[in-house]
């Protein structure tokens, strides 16, 4: 029977705190950038300008249909050579994760907008609103309500996806766990703790999303 010894992990507490901080910062960054990219791509996909639609479609399909781990590695090793630029592990990670998330956000945002009854846009246009005013004042406020639960779900997945950046030696929670595991020869305790920390951070979030979904289901 394995003798668990969680007490010895106390030495590494700051490592875990730092790791969790990096993971949280990464999540915030890639969610914010991803949402902006997703909004742009989602709107482009609804544009009257055909090349914009093609571009957005190509972006969405490329990022949805390749594994995130491959994207991370590609952005770190291949992109710098192709583009002739230097890119840090953090830069490559933020770029790949944001673009990956953005491709999913784009579909959610586009779907939310087209789910709004056509009559809403027509009523706005009949009042004399420009398409931009109609989008901002009438369509998006309604669409947002429907988009929030799936966007939150996707963001939770993004939170988990940040653990992949450890392969590029970005010091996130999992990477710091690996460091501690090598140092302590206590991988069972370490990786169990890492899993528990992810769970403790994510479970409340999923609970909030579920509550939000229920509230939306009861209102209109």
């Amino acid at each position: 029977m394995y003798q668990w010894d969680f007490g010895s992990l106390w030495t590494y507490r700051w490592l875990f705190v730092q790791g969790l901080g990096v993971t949280a910062a990464f999540t915030v960054a890639i969610v914010v950038i991803g949402l902006l990219v997703g909004l742009a791509a989602g709107l482009a996909k609804l544009s009257h300008v055909a090349p914009l639609r093609w571009l957005s479609n190509a972006y969405i399909e490329v990022f949805r249909c390749t594994p995130l781990l491959v994207q991370l590695v590609w952005f770190y090793y291949a992109l710098p050579i192709l583009a002739g630029i230097e890119i840090s592990a953090v830069g490559a990670s933020v770029l790949a994760l944001s673009l990956y998330g953005g491709s999913f956000y784009a579909e959610i945002i586009r779907g939310g907008i087209v789910s709004i009854d056509r009559g809403q846009g027509e009523a706005a246009a009949a009042l004399g609103m420009t398409p931009a005013q109609s989008l901002r004042r009438i369509i998006l406020p309604q669409a947002l309500k429907r988009m929030v639960p799936p966007l939150m779900n996707q963001s939770i997945i993004q939170f988990k996806n940040t653990s992949l950046v450890s392969v590029l030696a970005v010091p996130d929670l999992l990477y710091q766990g690996q460091v501690a595991a090598h140092d302590s020869y206590r991988p069972l305790e370490i990786y169990t703790l890492v899993a528990v920390l992810y769970f403790a951070a994510l479970y409340p979030l999923t609970w909030i999303v579920r509550r939000g979904e229920q509230r939306l289901a009861t209102s209109d």
């Binding site: 009854d117 009559g119 809403q120 027509e122 009523a123 706005a124 246009a125 009949a126 009042l127 004399g128 609103m129 420009t130 005013q133 009438i138 406020p141 309604q142 309500k145 209109d220």
Partner: peptide
């Protein structure tokens, strides 16, 4: 948009803004 601002329209299904 400027042109439409000068004409009012009422629809069969009202199309009120629900929010």
């Amino acid at each position: 948009a400027r042109f439409r601002a000068g004409t009012g329209m009422v629809f069969q299904h009202f199309n009120l803004f629900p929010h």
